[in-house]
Amino acid sequence: MIRVLLLIGILAAAMWFGPMLVNNAGYIKIIVAGTVFETTLLGLSLLILALIAVTWFIGIVLRKLLRLQHISFNFFRWRRQRKAQQAYELGLQAYAKQQWKLASQHLAKACHDDFMLEEKRLFAAYAAFYAGDINQANSYIAALSAESNSTLFVQADLLLQQDQAAQACVLLRDKVTADTEDKGLGQLYLYALQQAGQWQQLLQVVPLAIKQQWFDKDKWRQQRFDIYPAAISQLSQQQRFDENADYWLNLPAKERKSTAANVGRAWAMAQSGQNEAAEKLLVSQLQLDELPLVLPYLRKIPLGKSVLKLRKQAQHWLRDHASNGYVYALLAYLAEQEGEPQQAEIAWHKARQYEPKLG
């Protein structure tokens, strides 16, 4: 609006003063240090305009050479950039505070300037999504570079958060290959496969995840328990788990023999009624230091009353680790399996006493 008003003002001034300047060009004489400059007012005006044009051209060249494209010598552009930068700062602050609607409003204003535009659109897409405006979020995603891994990540991530894991898997399947360098994309693909229940495909991807180190050592230790127990038990229920199949044999031996994999085997045995064999396998595999990782999955295994050996193992651990809350949680699970709710409640009380996060 300001530009339009200025343009109208300039045109009006030109119409008013133009004919007068042409017919009465004026005369200007400047004497500096004995040097005399003589020209007309119109000539001086044209000279000033030429100097402005040269200055503008030099500014463009300097911006290109010094890579200062985000800096503008144009007042109006500079003003717009400054407002956009302020909006970006306020948007990030609101984003950090999880004030999604406010963040979405500020980031929308920040997108009016093209400096760091891709990053602004990424944040704006998430802010709009969390604010409940899915259409607006999709519009930001559509404006992102189609070839960028970041675009693919945000598309798949938002699909996962809308419980559309199967679509996320389709989106990521062709992009997560042996040449993938984006570990975040690989991690998201694993999560999508887990959420979609595509267990066989998940096991096929594991060697790639290990080779490319999508997770560090500690996180992969947790990932084993997120993958193998559910994958093996679910595939066994569907009568599709085969230890001679390529998807299993292609796994490193360390993975196939891991505690997590054996918990999955025990789970599958218990589901097929082999409770005693499942308990025997668990007793041979469980380690005290892995109990925090094992327990969430162990509690899903329907052992029934076949828990005597496990109970003895837990009591043995308690003799040397009387304040270990996870051992008490194990005892609570065993009591539940034996149909002793009172004993289970007592054990759970002890477990929460020594390990509050179990509550």
Score class of each variant (00 low, 15 high):
214 W>D: 00
232 I>L: 10
121 R>E: 03
13 A>T: 05
224 R>P: 00
120 K>N: 05
140 Y>D: 01
94 A>M: 06
36 V>D: 06
332 A>E: 08
301 I>Y: 09
331 L>S: 06
300 K>H: 06
228 Y>V: 00
80 R>Y: 00
310 L>S: 08
38 E>R: 15
304 G>P: 02
89 E>C: 06
3 R>N: 13
274 Q>C: 08
321 H>Y: 12
238 Q>F: 01
18 G>W: 06
80 R>A: 01
52 I>N: 09
27 Y>S: 15
182 D>C: 13
87 A>D: 01
338 E>Q: 15
319 R>W: 12
322 A>D: 14
4 V>E: 13
358 L>V: 07
318 L>E: 02
67 R>A: 08
277 A>S: 11
95 Y>H: 09
185 L>Y: 08
345 E>K: 15
304 G>H: 04
162 Q>F: 00
69 Q>K: 13
263 V>C: 02
229 P>Q: 06
232 I>Y: 01
112 H>S: 12
236 S>W: 07
192 A>L: 09
132 G>I: 11
54 V>W: 01
170 V>F: 04
171 L>W: 09
355 E>L: 11
353 Q>Y: 14
310 L>E: 01
11 L>A: 14
347 A>D: 05
46 L>A: 04
316 H>C: 08
297 Y>P: 00
337 Q>H: 09
54 V>E: 00
138 N>D: 13
29 K>D: 12
241 F>V: 12
18 G>K: 04
219 K>L: 11
81 Q>P: 00
146 A>R: 13
297 Y>F: 13
7 L>C: 09
311 R>D: 06
122 L>Q: 07
298 L>P: 00
298 L>I: 03
147 E>K: 14
298 L>W: 04
238 Q>N: 08
125 A>Y: 07
210 I>Y: 09
141 I>H: 06
56 W>A: 09
71 I>S: 09
34 G>S: 05
356 P>Q: 01
154 V>Q: 08
87 A>N: 03
